[in-house]
């Protein structure tokens, strides 16, 4: 087995730093020492794979995957997009998992005690594999904003958590997507851990009227970019070096 090509270095100025004073929980959960930079080995460049036996067809339909007595309450949305790498190349057959609050801003989690009601017909998680073009699609309801204890008056913008794999374990990524036009985005201490406004804009899903189901569901498009692989035209580290 020859080693797969290296990845582009992660741009640490584009990602949030570990220590972000205004997102208070990060203060005691951020390493003080610098990360040790590694040249990737097979341990970082290989990664788990998933197949259609891992995922059920209904897993990407959050309107139906936990429904007991009817549809969940809230604004019905299609969430779709592509998983690409930094070279613009689609990432096929990769696992995309999402989780979110319900329309009232409440998670189905025993640690969430917000007074908004649990929706008996809404679970709040889904998963799917990208197709051969890197495309993914979920149907869900738009999550609500909710208060959280950072400052006393902190509100999270409506968001969906997204987890993506890619072929190399070093491409592993978790992020959050926000919705176009939400005034809470600019106020959020978690959003603002990201230093560059262009990077923040990359997390805002666009209203996509071309992807709606007319008279049924509105749509948002969210493309996800994973680290790209270097080309291998010139081998600068031959065997035995």
């Amino acid at each position: 087995m020859t080693q797969p090509p290296d990845l582009y270095q992660r741009d640490r100025d584009w990602h949030p730093p570990a220590y972000t004073q205004n997102y208070k929980t990060s203060v005691s959960r951020s390493p003080k020492n610098a990360l040790l930079s590694l040249e990737s080995t097979l341990s970082e460049l290989s990664g788990p794979t998933f197949g259609h036996s891992d995922v059920d067809p209904l897993d990407n339909d959050l309107i139906r995957n936990y429904a007991k007595t009817g549809d969940p309450i809230g604004e019905r949305i299609i969430l779709h997009g592509r998983v690409l790498d930094e070279n613009g190349k689609p990432v096929p057959n990769t696992l995309v998992e999402i989780w979110q609050a319900n329309a009232g801003g409440r998670y189905r989690h025993k640690k969430d005690t917000y007074l908004a009601a649990i929706d008996p017909n809404f679970g709040g998680c889904g998963r799917t594999l990208t197709d051969e073009h890197g495309c993914y699609r979920f149907r869900t309801i738009k999550p609500g904003a909710y208060p959280w204890r950072n400052w006393i008056n902190s509100w999270r913008p409506a968001h969906i958590h997204v987890s993506v794999f890619g072929p190399s374990f070093a491409q592993r990524l978790i992020t959050q997507l926000y919705f176009e036009g939400d005034p809470l985005i600019a106020k959020c201490p978690i959003v603002n851990t990201i230093p560059d406004q262009r990077a923040i804009d990359q997390l805002v899903a666009a209203l996509d009227l071309n992807a709606t189901v007319p008279l049924d569901s509105i749509a948002y498009k969210f493309d996800i970019v994973l680290r790209g692989h270097r080309s291998t035209y010139f081998e600068n580290r031959p065997e035995g070096n």
Binding site: G88, H109, D112, G123, I200, L203, V225, G228
Partner: peptide, 26 residues
Amino acid sequence: DYRKETPSQTAGPYVHIGLAPGDAGF
């Protein structure tokens, strides 16, 4: 014309319902 990697955000306190719902009692 390289694209930028999607920036990371915290997985938050409820990551379990997304990635390990059964273990979170769901």
